[in-house]
């Protein structure tokens, strides 16, 4: 998809539902420096969401879509779970893969896109729940990292299988009792960020989605590093308010509480030396451009 092609035939302009006209006129495709601040001003790349009211996944989705550096040339790969309810409303190319297969599908896709469109930037971003990423899909997740596939994996970590009513997941914390896991988790939360680091990811971040500017920064870094260097992994806490017994308005506070020092979703990152150098060069370039803009 290229933004030049996102045009309605003039004969049908007046009969197209308004959201499509909005998308053509006001979406942020191709806009330099797009980011979360566009939300609410420009057309977002998400129309409505079909998650529970107040589900933090809906915030996370909006921030991610607003922060993709290249949405018109990005393909997202999703998997079964609550996230898959949102993908039908997203105005970015996306593929729904069989539960757990997302990183295998993304590997083939990324390779095919580089053969089909040589010299053109095509980003692939996987977005799946923790059940898909760390349990049923762990093989595919790890193998993609071992093979150094150049795409970003985002895990919406809500610490259980939400879409099927609350079963235990590898990322669930020890001792937690869920609706469909009444005995309580007997093992520690799997340390996937560390596993990602050891498996060859160039950039790994663990955080919540309480701060949009932070989400914007890590998404952008992850996508740009995956393009140039190697696989990247983001583990974002998107609590399932339904399962932990919170109200619609309480998701944000839950995330704030869980990101305090010492808590499981405090911000931490693992960045390889080459990724650090890449980010430093990127920052220097951006400063140069900003300075030139002020002078000019």
């Amino acid at each position: 998809m290229s933004k030049e092609k996102i045009q309605i035939c003039p004969e049908f302009y007046d009969i197209m539902p308004p959201e499509y006209r909005d998308l053509v006129e006001q979406a942020t495709y191709g806009k330099e420096g797009r980011g979360w601040k566009d939300i609410g001003q420009s057309k977002e790349l998400i129309e409505d969401h079909s998650l529970c009211a107040g589900c933090p996944e809906s915030m996370a989705f909006r921030y991610i879509l607003a922060s993709l550096p290249n949405p018109e040339d990005t393909v997202m790969v999703g998997s079964t779970g609550c996230t898959s309810l949102v993908f039908p409303h997203v105005a970015v190319h996306n593929i729904h893969s069989l539960f757990g297969n997302q990183n295998a599908v993304a590997s083939g896709l990324k390779r095919a896109l580089s053969v089909r469109f040589p010299g053109r930037i095509k980003d692939v971003v996987v977005l799946a729940g923790d059940g898909a990423t760390v349990d049923i899909g762990l093989d595919m997740t790890l193998q993609a990292w071992f093979r150094q596939e150049k795409f970003t994996t985002i895990c919406f970590d809500n610490e259980l299988y939400a879409n099927t009513g609350g079963q235990e997941s590898g990322l669930m914390r020890k001792g937690f009792v869920a609706k469909m896991a009444p005995v309580g988790k007997k093992f520690e939360k799997v340390r996937l960020p560390e596993i990602a680091r050891e498996s060859g990811c160039a950039y790994v971040v663990n955080c919540t989605v309480s701060k949009p500017n932070l989400v914007e920064k890590v998404i952008r870094n992850a996508v740009l590093i995956a393009r140039e260097i190697g696989p990247t992994y983001l583990q974002l806490y998107t609590p399932c308010i339904l399962e932990i017994g919170k109200n619609s308005m309480e998701g944000l506070q839950e995330m704030r509480d869980s990101e305090k020092p010492g808590e499981r979703f405090r911000y931490y990152e693992y960045v390889t030396d080459s990724a650090k150098q890449f980010l430093a060069e990127l920052e220097a370039k951006e400063k140069q451009t900003a300075a030139a803009a002020i002078e000019g």
Partner: peptide, 11 residues
């Protein structure tokens, strides 16, 4: 395929 102006045939 005909609503979007993606090639001359569609137009």
């Amino acid at each position: 395929l005909v609503l979007w102006n993606w090639n001359e045939k569609a137009a």
